[in-house]
Design a protein around this nucleic acid. Structure first.
Lengths: 341, 341
DNA sequence: CTGTTAGCGCCTTCAC
DNA sequence: GTGAAGGCGCTAACAG
């Protein structure tokens, strides 16, 4: 990379010159207006191709008012949630005209404001705000000039539109799966009680237990989201309730810890004890022994939905307000099978 | 979100009108130029505040010839490498005027071209291309009109500038650490041989063994990057070479599998056998039993360096070409201690 | 100290 | 099919 060798990007005029027409004609030709002869149009298109011309969206946007860019503002440090959401959003945009730009605020409000300004000042058409937990987050307000959709973490303002995984349903689904396998002595080892995700999943599971006439074994144990907590909690739980035939965990990490402890004390998974996780984090679930059943939050689908809502708003549709829940998906692997006998 | 409620963003003229001054004066006031009366400045600032004015960077850039935006183009699906690099880059930009926009090409060349066009057509000032492995990737060429720096995955064109982790040094560092602990019967269980990262780390480790006059135990085992492979390989390796007193693994995932197997056969870690990983993926290293020593590739530093190079190029400096290696960092945890006796 | 004027770069529309 | 004109939001000259 030599200094100053930097070539000016190709402009419409460059294309026009190469095609031997005026910029105006080139513009019409490339934009599919029909006041131009087919042969001329082809010449222009060829020239554009040859120069790898990409129209300056900025100058274009000055006019059209649309830039074809959607911003993704995240606070999700590790990118564990935001990446699938980004992918889903991009899928919704298609290979078409729209691009997603991702900014990471790292959970820092100053940084978030900074990125927000940057995105807005670049005249993005819409904004998707992604949080790292399902607890409500402060609204960015309504005066941004572009449609905003909150993904994963809902806005605390009910007049915003938020799309978030249905963790109550996820909990219910997980519990029903264990029940359907004939498990009746089910314990819950959850994550951080301060997370709505932890509480909601427990709520859903308890609904399922109640509906099936089952009483969960022991109290739900809340801790943190780590493998270590899963091990410790499993040790305490099994010491007190050795009769357990299934453990419903708050996350895949916790499940891994629980699996570890069960192996340590010689309990067999899945026949003796079945284990379920949440999140379907592949690096954890598919490498476990046995592989872990889990609930997938369908984040890609969530991202797609969020993007579709942004589009709809751009097209002038009323996309509604409040919290829209997306359904989870049960992923069955070796850690949950029907009870023998 | 009501349809069509979308308001035009506030412009400098709006602010000026509210403050009862001309746009030029408002500009001076907000930009801290001193050719403006304190009282007037205050009025303008208040007005800007009240309208939540954010200057249009594009128009600003129109004038300055710079947009203050750097693109990050990644193919790193999971975001495991790109996120720390993004963070480092942002740190280099400071809380200042520059923003990073991340686009995910998902390893798809069409998508990459599409994103590239989008970024260029928004007149980004520079580009950082992030790959997911340390093997060379196709160059984007030199005619992009902006400086390009390749991060993690180097360009296959030596006239590009690439910044990538020094995996040979990482391997050497890991091996030297084990040697310094008095370990002499060290086996290597690596990852996918088709990855330069796997081969380079082995190369570095072998250099260290040779320098110390040690002969590695058994052949280096190549497989994939998974925990499962770690378990299987450890089983094979230890069956044949039970005398092993340390295992150097190709990744943290593999290490986890090795730890698992050692526990299964009742070998104690770290006293009997020490285990080292690579990558320092916290969710794996800090939740292992015992916690895993690892080599951290300092990706955040890498991102910072890449961003600095882009800046330097923008300022007209010659930033050089070829592959620049960034040094790794040894992270010692409970899985590696000195041999007893 | 403030307002006016003239672009920045690029694309599009409006007359011909 | 063309050329000229106009504009987006902002800033730097310069004039008042």
């Amino acid at each position: 990379m030599r200094a100053r060798k930097i070539a000016r990007p190709t402009t419409l005029s460059d294309v026009a010159r190469l095609a031997g027409v005026s910029p105006a004609t080139a513009s019409k030709a490339l934009n599919g207006r029909d006041e131009v002869a087919p042969a001329t149009r082809q010449r222009v298109i060829d020239a554009a191709e040859r120069l790898a011309f990409s129209p300056n969206q900025l100058a274009k946007g000055l006019f059209a008012g649309r830039t074809g860019t959607v911003g993704l503002l995240t606070s999700d440090l590790e990118g564990r949630f935001v990446i699938p959401i980004l992918m889903g959003a991009e899928d919704a945009f298609g290979a078409g005209q729209v691009n997603a730009f991702l900014c990471d605020a790292r959970g820092d409000e100053i940084r978030e404001q900074h990125h927000l300004r940057a995105l807005l000042s670049r005249r993005i058409d819409g904004l998707i705000v992604v949080g790292r937990q399902t607890d409500p987050r402060p609204s960015l307000g309504h005066d941004l000039g572009v449609p905003v959709v909150y993904a994963y973490a809902p806005s605390d303002d009910e007049t915003d539109l938020s799309i978030t995984p249905d963790n109550v349903e996820a909990g219910r689904m997980a519990a029903e799966h264990l029940i359907s396998l004939g498990r009746t002595r089910i314990a819950q080892i959850s994550g951080d009680r301060s997370y709505a995700a932890a509480r909601d999943r427990v709520t859903g599971a308890n609904q399922a237990f109640k509906a099936a006439g089952l009483t969960p074994v022991g109290d739900v144990m809340f801790g943190d989201w780590s493998e270590t907590w899963g091990r410790d909690a499993a040790a305490a739980m099994l010491a007190q309730h050795p009769e357990i035939d299934a453990v419903l965990c708050g996350s895949d990490q916790i499940s891994r810890g629980v699996l570890d402890h069960l192996r340590d004390i010689g309990r067999s998974v899945p026949h003796d004890v079945a284990v379920m996780g949440f999140d379907n984090w592949l690096v954890l679930t598919t490498n476990a022994r046995p592989q872990l059943s889990s609930i997938d939050a369908n984040l890609k689908q969530l991202g797609r939905t969020a993007a579709e809502r942004v589009f709809a708003a751009l097209d002038g549709e009323d996309i509604g307000t409040g919290i829209e829940l997306t359904p989870p998906r049960l992923v069955i692997r070796g850690s949950t099978v029907a009870r023998l006998g």
